[in-house]
């Protein structure tokens, strides 16, 4: 694993961007871009990142950026990738779509699936803050079971989230990863690895969102880590046909450490306030998590 001191000092995101204080997605893009370097073209659909860039006539990203409509990240990246291929620059310039969970799980899945099926040469990042963060925390396909959102305001979400990264892995793309912004060194390593793969690479980064998760900004990283430590978020990658767990999730899978109690993660977050009052629903939450663990363990073969 890369050490902190080995992380490049180049910053591709400027001071004074518009992310909320404690934003996990911004930690993620910072280290993703350190790995990819400046020879990268970004396309950003409607998501928090379209706000984080800041206001016209300035922009907080030191890269060429095509902001595009909500559902088009996969398609816009396909066009950029095709254009670079026409120019013979497809091997020199990275193309990355940087989309939120709404733009990936929900409105953008068609364009993404199409791009993956066409084996488009690009990296697609879904930074998953588990709601429509940009528009005020409405429910998305990525919102966890039982969580409060502004469109599930009283009961909380009644469905489990989609296994998006697994859906993408099953497209047969050469590289898929599910990681967390709470582990920036892993973010850096994952993108460093993905950079050298040719074809569609899908990376989902669990992105802490103090605003949406109803927690203190200084606890942002803590909850990102707790999600992994309690097994709520599973870190894994699929390289070629090989599936493997990553980081702390690997140690959990191998039985080296035990998952922390689920309540450690749920209880302090305001968004689970209703959920935790109902033990049956907490069990249902856990059933969803365990199911995902079982499926992934089968894939990994442990």
């Amino acid at each position: 694993m890369v050490t902190i001191k080995e992380l490049p000092r180049d910053e591709y995101i400027e001071l004074g961007h518009a992310a909320c204080a404690g934003c996990g997605a911004t930690i993620a893009i910072r280290h993703a871009l350190k790995a990819l370097g400046g020879n990268t073209i970004l396309t950003v659909p409607a998501c928090c990142m379209s706000v984080i860039q800041g206001l016209f006539p300035k922009n907080a990203l030191h890269l060429p950026v095509l902001n595009t409509a909500f559902e088009t990240a996969g398609a816009a990246a396909s066009g950029i990738a095709a254009g670079l291929k026409f120019m013979g620059k497809d091997k020199d310039i990275n193309v990355m779509a940087w989309a939120g969970d709404g733009g990936t799980y929900d409105i953008g899945i068609q364009a993404l699936s199409g791009a993956a099926e066409r084996q488009t040469n690009f990296i697609y990042t879904c930074y998953n803050n588990e709601s429509y963060g940009n528009t005020g925390q409405q429910r998305s396909g990525a919102t966890p079971y039982g969580a409060f959102s502004t469109t599930t305001p009283i009961i909380g979400k009644q469905e489990h989230r989609k296994p998006m990264a697994r859906i993408m892995a099953e497209h047969g793309i050469p590289y898929t990863a599910s990681i967390s912004a709470a582990y920036p060194r892993l973010v850096f390593e994952t993108y460093s690895k993905a950079k050298d793969v040719v074809g569609t690479r899908f990376i989902e980064v669990h992105a802490m969102c103090p605003t949406g998760w109803r927690c203190a900004t200084w606890d942002s990283v803590k909850f990102g880590k707790l999600a992994v430590e309690t097994g709520v978020w599973i870190m894994w990658e699929k390289e070629g046909d090989e599936w493997r767990f990553l980081g702390l999730s690997k140690r959990i899978a191998e039985g080296k450490i035990k998952r922390k109690p689920l309540m450690d993660y749920l209880k302090p977050q305001g968004r689970f306030r209703t959920l935790i009052k109902d033990p049956e629903r907490v069990k249902e939450f856990e059933r969803g998590i365990n199911r995902e663990w079982e499926i992934l363990k089968k894939r990994v073969g442990c």
Partner: peptide, 20 residues
């Protein structure tokens, strides 16, 4: 900049965010 909606990288795209 009047011509089209292009923007350039610069510090403080959201102002002096230390105010927050």
């Amino acid at each position: 900049r009047r011509f089209t909606c292009i923007t350039y990288p610069e510090a403080g795209a959201m102002g002096l965010t230390g105010d927050w």
